[in-house]
Nucleic acid binder design. Structure first.
Lengths: 188, 188
DNA sequence: AAGATAAATTTCGAAGCTAAACAGTACATG
DNA sequence: CATGTACTGTTTAGCTTCGAAATTTATCTT
């Protein structure tokens, strides 16, 4: 792929084909299971492409990915769409300081409001505004259209199997904790 | 999930279970195919977890994700592991300016060298150093161990099917260009 | 030789995050 | 009831990473 044969794959930016990439992996790293690598690489690429698509869609609505995450957490919390900053921070994996900054921006843009909890004045309540909810809804509409198109070629059976297998993989990652060496030791 | 029933799922930071999340999606957004959403959400979560794992592993080796990307591109380019900054930038989706900065750091850390191409003195050649290659190799060893563990529960047949289906999805995203509305129009 | 083109770097600034110090509130305990 | 302790959220200061635009250096064209 240096400059001799490999101008074949047409990916994002001269990115090699999946098969080309796996061949390169095998060339450079012998003890590699091509089948495993194919699954993992495909997962990774697929997700990158999906994120690019989602990013384009949310950008078209004038919100960043960071803001999208907050909107999503609030909507999924259910009516009346209120959460505390620390709960949000925990959910999104941020420090409280970073959460404060994000909320600052989103308040300034009218996506959410921030007020003190009168029953416990230490706490703060972040509440989703109608405009924020509308943006989330519109983003969801765009996303579902994209997702249906993406899965278009899969039969009902294939969808079922794919969902089941992915869920099983997810369970394995979520219910297991990697030890010092990175191995997944089962907890069940 | 506001605060009444939903303390069940034990994800990253109080993250709801996949099924809980899908139920919430359906509650807030009626025209949603739960099967599609399950696949997409599982894909997304799986990838997030994998990235966390990879991040921990590379961090243990003292390199950032950004540096990991550069090492990977150089190794996969094959011996003698040389690329120009602009080619790297295109591959990684960065501007040339950002690429210059990254290379600065990596040269300072002894992972790569940077020298002018004597045959065309406008160009620069970034070359992988043995230390960089060693880091890549060690990261690959860790990654493959993790990946084997991840796919442990899948039968040979399931691996074959999963690889095939994911490849098909990937082809659909890579060979199609979303139009203005975000739809994937097939190009084949 | 003169301009056009191209590659890489430099400069400047923006975004986003964190750590640590700080302020305000609630609660427990004597 | 008084006070210490714990907790929530914000502020401040600084760091890292990236990008846009201008700049430098070299090559190519005519």
């Amino acid at each position: 792929m240096g400059d001799t044969p490999g101008t074949s794959g047409a990916g994002l930016g001269g990115e090699p084909t999946l098969d080309e990439q796996i061949a390169a992996y095998q060339r450079e790293f012998q003890d590699l299971d091509p089948q495993v690598e194919k699954i993992v690489s495909a997962l990774s690429r697929l997700n990158r492409r999906m994120n690019v698509a989602y990013g384009r869609q949310t950008a078209a609505l004038g919100i960043s990915n960071a803001e999208w995450e907050v909107l999503k957490a609030l909507v999924l919390s259910g009516a009346p769409y209120r959460m505390g900053p620390s709960e949000l921070a925990k959910r999104l994996g941020l420090t409280p300081a970073a959460m404060t900054h994000r909320i600052d921006r989103m308040v300034a843009e009218g996506l959410v409001t921030r007020e003190r909890d009168e029953s416990n004045r230490v706490r703060v309540i972040v509440e989703l505004m109608p405009e924020g909810r509308d943006k989330w809804l519109e983003a969801m509409r765009l996303a579902t259209v994209f997702e249906e198109d993406l899965l278009q070629d899969l039969s009902a059976d294939e969808r079922t199997v794919l969902g089941e297998v992915l869920t099983r993989l997810l369970r394995r990652v979520e219910h297991a904790q990697p030890d010092a060496g990175g191995r997944l030791t089962d907890l069940d």
